[in-house]
């Protein structure tokens, strides 16, 4: 098993922008579109995904030498769904309000391909600490995209941020479209466009 060529910081950093799971790899789009109508929901969902990704990547990496290749995917799924259920129970017990608004999307983290991808691409091939660094980076990459989309949608859709009204209804008519699914597509599409633009400019300069 070849050790990772990258430093832990590099493993962490790649998930933030260059290999961002949502904005670049376009994984986990379903949940990113569904829960981002407020900043609070985006943050809760992001943190849940960070927890599940880190915990399952660490465990997958720990057991990577004992699990036969033929059953590795089944093992990942059992591990991932275990942590997802843990996160779901945690929300239900301590943040019932958030649990209610996120609805089925917390249990659905089980089939979030970001986590599966990290288990298969990274954690099953690299040591534990490197896998954790990779998972934290991916989780943070997912979370910041959700927060960015959530911020735009909440400001335009509700005139508020984190539930605090910043644009009064007297001066601003909320755009209902931003709360609905199309608002998510528009916002995320523009964000991906912006990231691609920045990346292409950087590329040109470095040439």
């Amino acid at each position: 098993m070849a050790p990772s060529q990258k430093t832990y910081f590099e493993e962490f950093k790649k998930g933030i922008l260059h290999e961002n799971p949502v904005a670049v790899m376009l994984l986990g789009i379903c949940s990113s579109l569904a829960v981002t109508n407020t900043v609070k929901n985006s943050l809760a969902m992001g943190l849940a995904v960070v927890f599940v990704t880190v915990a399952s990547s660490a465990l997958v990496s720990l057991v990577r030498k004992f699990v036969p290749g033929e059953v590795r995917i089944a093992t990942y799924i059992v591990i991932i769904s275990g942590f997802v259920t843990l996160a779901d129970l945690f929300f239900k017990a301590f943040f019932p309000g958030i649990s209610k608004t996120l609805g089925p999307y917390v249990p659905l983290i089980v089939v979030n391909c970001i986590i599966m991808a990290r288990a298969e691409v990274h954690a099953s091939k690299y040591p534990v600490i490197s896998s954790i660094a990779d998972a934290v980076g991916m989780g943070v990459g997912y979370t910041w995209v959700l927060l960015a989309v959530g911020t735009v949608r909440e400001i335009l859709g509700f005139g508020s941020i984190f539930g605090f009204t910043i644009l009064s209804e007297k001066v601003f008519n909320p755009w209902i479209v931003m709360i609905l699914p199309p608002g998510a597509f528009i916002t995320l599409g523009l964000l991906i466009g912006l990231i691609n633009y920045i990346k292409s400019r950087k590329h040109r300069i470095s040439l």
Binding site: V63, V71, A74, V78, I79, L86
Partner: peptide
């Protein structure tokens, strides 16, 4: 063995 152990450990944790 690998699958059973994983299932039992995760199940116990839950």
């Amino acid at each position: 063995i690998a699958l059973s152990v994983t299932a039992v450990v995760v199940g116990g944790l839950l």
